[in-house]
Amino acid sequence: MSRKRRAAGLFLLMMSFLFGFYGIGMYWPEALPAKGVTVPIPLGTTNAQTIASLARSGVLPHPRLFHLAWALAGYPPMQAGLYEFRGRINQAQVLHRLIAGQSTPLSLLIVPGWRLQDIYQEIHDKAPYLDQQNLPQGAAAARYLARQGVGAQGSAEGWLFPDSYRYVPGTTALSVLRRAYVRMQRELHSLWAGRAPGLPLGDPYQALILASIVQKEGAPPAEQAHIAAVFLNRLRQGMPLQSDPTVIYALGERYTGSLTTSEMHVESPYNTYLHTGLPPTPIAMPGLGSLMAVLHPADSADLYFIAQGDEYHYSESYTQHLKQIQHYLQHAGGAGL
């Protein structure tokens, strides 16, 4: 056999070995622990850091082969995300998932009627992969958020639109809240532009404040437009709104679950039993339904309502209101305005 043929044969043997090693290393599935492996890849993580994290987690038994495969693919960007691996998986599948961004969805939920402190609690309890650095804390958080572009009129309260907001590990909580603020701005100004005529509201912010009160009244969606009409009629006549949720907001952590007679007289600009007009800021995050209810209220002259479970009864006069209280509430229990 000639020297050239021996060299060619040796070369083919080496190439076969290399391709075989590459194929086994990249495509042979590895068994993962029964509970699986979770690897967070935060925003801003370099590709080298990503590969190192995957290797430390045990997902990549051959990180250099993985890097070679990634290079042969043309160095496509690997996406940030929360990656969960279970069962048996090979390195080629890991690479495909990283490039395609096939990560576990993460989202921050904001529920209609939540206050800013409720959203903060949700971030603390259920969003461990959000970066909470630079997120204002304490009693002045609503004011400081507004200074950072999350809120207006000096407060973030009421300005975060209830929805589910997707994110990946390393996203700042501040940026997610800013998205919620931009969404509320868009929805509020769109609804304000198409509002019903003759509303006793001077600007979109007043609509936001009243919508937050309607939201916190806790009525079923079908009743919100009628309840909004009651409050709007009271504003027209200069009557106090007399909404319990505003007093509860004024009490803050002092509220124990039921309003006492003395608490109903707490001195605060949020106490709508003592002060006419609207409170200075929203008292919660209103949902789309309560915003629409305020800007497109029911056609009604009612000034009072009482609630008995999910049933609501309305009246135009105080005399009629007292009769309804006697008929519906004194015998069965309930709440009323």
Score class of each variant (00 low, 15 high):
75 Y>I: 00
75 Y>M: 09
76 P>C: 03
76 P>Q: 05
76 P>Y: 03
77 P>K: 08
78 M>L: 12
82 L>V: 03
87 G>C: 10
88 R>V: 11
88 R>K: 15
89 I>N: 04
90 N>V: 07
91 Q>I: 00
93 Q>R: 13
96 H>M: 09
97 R>C: 09
97 R>I: 05
99 I>G: 04
103 S>Y: 05
104 T>A: 12
106 L>H: 08
107 S>K: 11
107 S>N: 10
114 W>E: 04
115 R>Y: 01
115 R>M: 07
119 I>V: 14
121 Q>K: 14
121 Q>L: 12
122 E>N: 12
122 E>T: 12
126 K>P: 06
126 K>Q: 15
129 Y>F: 15
134 N>R: 14
137 Q>N: 11
139 A>G: 12
140 A>T: 15
142 A>D: 06
143 R>Q: 15
143 R>K: 15
144 Y>E: 14
145 L>W: 05
146 A>T: 03
146 A>L: 07
150 V>K: 00
150 V>S: 00
150 V>M: 01
151 G>S: 01
154 G>M: 05
154 G>T: 07
154 G>D: 06
155 S>E: 02
155 S>N: 08
155 S>C: 10
156 A>I: 09
158 G>A: 06
159 W>V: 02
160 L>C: 02
163 D>S: 11
169 P>Q: 09
170 G>Q: 09
170 G>V: 04
174 L>P: 01
176 V>H: 00
177 L>Q: 02
179 R>T: 05
181 Y>E: 04
181 Y>K: 03
182 V>A: 11
183 R>N: 10
190 S>K: 13
191 L>T: 00
191 L>E: 07
192 W>T: 03
193 A>V: 08
